[in-house]
Design a protein around this nucleic acid. Sequence first.
DNA 1: ACAAAAGTGTTTTTAATACACCCATGA
DNA 2: TCATGGGTGTATTAAAAACACTTTTGT
Lengths: 255, 255
Amino acid sequence: MSTAGSSAEKSSARSINPHISVDCVIFGFSTNQLKVLLIERAYTDESGNRHRDLKLPGDFITPDEHLDRAAARILEELTGLHDIYLRQFEVFGHPNRISRKIDLDWLLETTGLQIHRVVTTAYYALINISESNRDFAIKNNARWIHISRIPPLAFDHLEIIRRGLKHLQEALRNEPVGFELLPAKFTIRQLQTLYEVILDCKLDNRNFRKKVLGTRYLVQLDEKQAGVPHKPAYFYRFDRNTYMRDRKDYIGFNF
Amino acid sequence: MSTAGSSAEKSSARSINPHISVDCVIFGFSTNQLKVLLIERAYTDESGNRHRDLKLPGDFITPDEHLDRAAARILEELTGLHDIYLRQFEVFGHPNRISRKIDLDWLLETTGLQIHRVVTTAYYALINISESNRDFAIKNNARWIHISRIPPLAFDHLEIIRRGLKHLQEALRNEPVGFELLPAKFTIRQLQTLYEVILDCKLDNRNFRKKVLGTRYLVQLDEKQAGVPHKPAYFYRFDRNTYMRDRKDYIGFNF
DNA sequence: ACAAAAGTGTTTTTAATACACCCATGA
DNA sequence: TCATGGGTGTATTAAAAACACTTTTGT
């Protein structure tokens, strides 16, 4: 669990349910890297020294708040974005997930409550960094951290990210979620790199193009890349309506 | 959320966390049907009349109980079974999921507390009905109900079962979980029927045999069916060790 | 003219599908 | 001997994988 920096302060003012929280693993893709949006947390140790570390965006739910709604709220408070791809993926309820002194102290400091047991529901969000960076300021000392360069985090947040990545990989295999991480216009190579980075594998370029262009829901635009020192690539867009119509209800099984 | 019949009574005695519960969708397979284990719930309406309906086995967690542990406890209290396949699959946190008068009244009656908001973590369990019936008594007025003949249930338990079935179907496609629902010795036809019933489709017998016998982890026993009025089928068993060694780390993607 | 990434086809291999008959047993 | 479900093989089709060169642009 946890509480978003500024949301935490709000939490102590407004009414919260201190037993249940929501945490968001916000994935973004830029400069050919998968990143996670983390928040700087400041806390004071027993010697009065101020420390910083990072945590997932999250918050306690309010007494009558739907979990999905809480996740959307956290995302919107942080980034200003709404209508973002957001999926519940797992609950973390280990009784010792809040046991380090710094975590207990930080909760006391931000909520005013002595809290030692919180069950958190984890969501992952997929956002397009470049567009959202352009239009919305990232507030609350949030930072994009490369997925494989994540420092020690608050609570069990590293584990939550690991599991979130697993779920993202699973989703990427079975649904067209990759587009959520790309701008509306993208090149096939960008898409392929996204798959390679998230699934951590190499894909054959010709087979990849054959596969994705074989679907009817990837539509080529008239526009090409400009100013690149090589043959410019066409831009494509994802046509969700066509996907919805054509989606094959897969029946095979592998075990 | 909910509380298992007898566990509910216990809950009011022992210390509970009344905000968080665990519910178990316990699947079983017998007479070629997929079934769910449900518990009879009795409640008294305002006119003092006694009513019965059905609910999922579930309970509040205790203050320091791991969610997984709570699910295992519920399962064991009910069936006496342990080391059962048990997977968390989803959290149900809608603020109105406990809003019907009968549900509110029943909670008051069984816990002594006025409870109107509970976030529940749902697990599904896979058990082999015949073996467990033989060795363990099912307590607490529990009944196996055919998956497509489920009457109106307490709380949002019907929705939880629907979602649990979806997750079971998904698991069945990707992992060898079907064996959890069968006796240690089973015939290929039993296995095929299990797939057909759970995935709700017809499978070609020759192709099915080819596929499952192509794996190395389905091993034929010397034993055959006896007393059947037709050619007796060989029994097979699932070799989990071989599966663990041979499991192909599937890399393909379909979207 | 060079560097750099875009874009393109064919062959091979593998997996999925479709399909029909004989076999072993109990009654 | 009959009814019942068990068990088997092949041909076709579809999808995945392997693989190398030409094109377009900026510098």
